[in-house]
């Protein structure tokens, strides 16, 4: 607040120049290291990685139930055609028009069921399968080491690249690889390339930092929807 009163434009405190980690292993950062941008500090545990894996699967599969609605209608249409072809349909003394209405209603009902299945039930299955799978793959080793060795990781949303530097692992993705952002209640997930992701738990991010992440993605993502 006092920065505003002193007349300077409001400074964003997390945007400060980044000094390269002091004790960096030889040969680790040969790229011109200092890069400016918002700095975040996150702690990613195994559950976060499970969530990231679920989000990635969800983001890669199309949403909506139009396909399965069409399939449901098609199933009913096939059944009706089979009944009619067997020669038992369209007999008197059925009142005029009623079978046609009933057939149309039945097709519409099955299309509706198909839509429900495609839009709600199958995504649940997908979610269950991806979580079960991620838990199996990611369960911590015998010594309980979390992914990338755990510990607080420093994430720099730089002008050229995203730098992720933890105590025991580090990675960098150039902004050209950035594909987009996926969010749910507890996580923000940056996608790079087809399957590479960087997950940022919301509990470690202040609201303005979350906005900085969105802003960074808006500036650099080359594809519309994540």
């Amino acid at each position: 607040m006092n920065e505003v009163s002193s007349g300077t434009p409001p400074r964003r405190p997390w945007e400060r120049p980044v000094t390269p980690p002091s004790a960096r292993p030889a040969g680790l950062w040969t790229s011109p290291a200092p890069d400016r941008g918002p700095v975040l500090v996150v702690r990613v545990d195994t559950e976060d990685e499970v969530a990231a894996s679920r989000l990635a699967v969800a983001a890669m599969t199309p949403r909506g139930g139009l396909g399965s609605a069409a399939l449901g209608g098609l199933v009913m249409l096939t059944a009706v055609t089979a009944v009619l072809a067997s020669g038992s349909g369209w007999k008197s003394p059925v009142p005029e028009g009623l079978p046609l209405l009933a057939i149309l209603a039945a097709i519409a009902a099955f299309a509706g069921l198909g839509w429900l299945a495609g839009a709600y039930l199958l995504p649940l299955v997908r979610r269950w399968a991806s979580v079960a799978h991620a838990r199996r793959v990611l369960r911590p080793g015998p010594d309980g080491v979390p992914p990338d060795g755990g510990g607080p990781a420093r994430v720099v949303l730089g002008t050229r690249a995203l730098h992720w530097t933890g105590p025991r692992a580090a990675r960098r993705f150039d902004v050209a690889l950035l594909r987009g952002l996926v969010e749910d209640r507890d996580h923000m997930m940056l996608r790079f390339g087809l399957v590479s992701v960087v997950v940022l738990p919301r509990r470690d991010l202040a609201p303005e930092q979350q906005e900085a992440v969105r802003d960074w993605v808006r500036r650099h993502a080359r594809e519309g929807r994540a």
């Binding site: 399939l71 009913m76 009706v80 009944v83 038992s88 079978p99 099955f110």
Partner: peptide, 21 residues
């Protein structure tokens, strides 16, 4: 799901297309 719905669809069809009463 489809395997479950196919016999159901057959029953509904033979009801709707033959005699809805």
């Amino acid at each position: 799901l489809l395997a479950l719905s196919a016999p159901m669809a057959g029953r509904v069809a033979s009801w709707a297309a033959v005699n809805p009463h």
